[in-house]
């Protein structure tokens, strides 16, 4: 049927058009990162020249990266971001998985109260807590420390809720009972039996928490004053303030900032998309 063929062709063409629109900013960033300040202003993508495809390949330069990594202190910020995001994501996952396990697979007095509080906390918007948390950190003398930045984010109510929901049906009670009969301790059951079963959820939530801290801007902007503590988001924005029109430099910094998250996503891709949508479809 030619009509159906045509429709299929149009469908693919339309999708390729949108895919191109989506990818162009990435290409633009990559090209920009490799251009000198002069070429950035003179050309949109790659500078013209007499190389292959009429592009001046010899004009491309790694100077933006060299400057970022030698004079402008980017390694420090990269290290800070990696440290903050890894520590916060691992501790958040542990904290929420343990809490969710208790609520899903244990019966105890006060359970309904705890569950009610968790559900109520789901609707508290973050900005409401910004000012009072800042005051609390000031009183605890935790401003300008990593403890002050990390600690408040380790116990998100939605994390506990997600883990409870995912464990309630996927972890069989008979298995837990059998392990208890065999004399396994509660913590051994949790780490060796329960965690492996909910691995997809762990991967998804690890990714979400990692990205949450990596892309956190307002937190470090408010809490951290010392430049040597700044993660990439704040450090790069400060660079943008100083070298505002040196877009090649900013693009190189942005590229360095998003590459690790992209890599982590490709590693955890399957878990992430299924974990992201599973709660929504069932709910």
């Amino acid at each position: 049927m030619p009509a159906k063929r045509l429709l299929s062709f149009l469908l693919h063409a339309l999708l390729f058009f949108f895919a191109a629109l989506t990818l162009i900013p990435f290409v633009y960033m990559l090209c920009g990162a490799l251009k000198s300040k002069f070429d950035f202003a003179a050309t949109v993508f790659l500078p013209a020249g007499d190389g292959w495809f009429g592009i001046g390949w010899d004009r491309l330069t790694l100077e933006n990266f060299t400057r970022l990594f030698t004079d402008l202190g980017l390694p420090r910020a990269l290290h800070n971001s990696l440290l903050l995001a890894s520590v916060s994501s691992i501790l958040t996952v542990l904290c929420c998985a343990m809490g969710g396990y208790a609520l899903a697979k244990h019966k105890f007095r006060g359970q309904n109260l705890v569950m009610g509080v968790v559900l109520a906390a789901l609707i508290i918007p973050g900005p409401l807590l910004l000012a009072p948390s800042f005051q609390l950190l000031y009183k605890l003398d935790l401003l300008d420390t990593y403890t002050g930045l990390l600690l408040p984010g380790l116990a998100p109510a939605f994390g506990v809720f997600l883990f409870r929901q995912s464990m309630i049906n996927s972890v069989p009670n008979e298995l837990l009972e059998a392990a208890r009969m065999d004399g396994a301790g509660e913590f051994r059951i949790f780490f060796e039996l329960v965690l492996p079963i909910i691995r997809p959820m762990l991967g998804a939530f690890l990714m979400i928490s990692f990205m949450g801290m990596w892309n956190n801007f307002i937190g470090p902007q408010i809490i951290l004053q010392s430049p040597e503590l700044h993660p990439l988001s704040v450090a790069l924005n400060n660079l943008k303030g100083i070298y505002g029109t040196d877009y090649g430099l900013i693009m190189a910094g942005t590229l360095v900032s998003i590459a690790p998250v992209m890599c982590l996503f490709l590693l955890l891709q399957k878990e992430f998309i299924s974990g992201l949508t599973s709660g929504a479809v069932k709910g």
Binding site: C95, A102, A121, L129, Q135, P152, A155
Partner: peptide, 30 residues
């Protein structure tokens, strides 16, 4: 069996009370 769930909940509840419940109450006054 009764203590275990509270031990599992302890890290979450501790941080949650200090950094969510308490700031929420303070925000009324603030």
């Amino acid at each position: 069996l009764n203590l275990a769930p509270w031990l599992f909940l302890a890290p979450f509840l501790g941080i949650f009370c200090l950094f969510t419940v308490w700031p929420l109450l303070r925000s009324f006054i603030l």
